[in-house]
Amino acid sequence: MKIFVLMKQVPNKDAVLRVRGDGKWVEEGDLSFEVNESDGYALEESLRLKEKKGGEVVVACLGPQRAKSVIKDALARGADRAIHVVADDFAQAGPFAVAKVLAEAIRGEQPDLVLAGLQSDDQGYGQTGVIVAELLGLPHATIVIDVDYSSEQLRVKRELESGWYQWYTMQTPALLTIQSGISQIRYATLKGIMAAKKKEIREAQPAIAAGEGEFQTVERVYLPLKQKQTQFLGDGDAKKGAAQLAEKLRNEARVI
């Protein structure tokens, strides 16, 4: 079985974001980067499927050279090879353009399964996987929290809102978008890290230019306007803040 995993590199979650000079994106110079959270879970699920059904796991990533760190980490965890579509100017590309590039990068490979994360932590479009499925003519399921492929039939458990779930039986090949928490993620072993050095990372050009065939343009990026008047306590002093808060909880919220 050939499984493709779509993996994106995104700024660290704890990063302090500053708006870039042109006001259209964030300053990337002072950021560190990591793998998109749900994509890590998508990789883990693909490795587990490979362990059960055999075959290979291939990572597909669109991003600048620095995204190699995500690819190498995935190879160290057990992915077999990778396709890196190298581009510097897709950070603000819309979901259709990104999906188009990824779809074209894997089209000729005829995967049996494609796994994506359910949402990127930076752009948060929540749709790249679904569009890739449409472009490749595959059925899809989103927000998948369990995969049962023990028999011939692929069965997936989808998360619905407020604690509801639903199982779907899918035709294959198919694309699934994976929800965080589907399983516990393995660490890369030293052996894995060594083995990764010999694995293939094929670089490719994006099939379309950034911005081509895209119908949404970012005009301006900025810190959200605050809606609520939060009373900040302590003025940076933790002890003072705690004391003031205890007072408020007693006199205003009346929970003490």
């Binding site: 259709f96 749709q127 679904v130 899809h140 809102e161 119908f215």
Partner: peptide, 20 residues
């Protein structure tokens, strides 16, 4: 969640993504 599941597919048929 339901819209996230089908609307990107719909938009893609018109060569677009969602402004989501």
């Amino acid at each position: 969640y339901l819209v996230r599941d089908f609307a990107p597919k719909l938009a893609a048929r018109f060569g677009k993504g969602l402004v989501s």
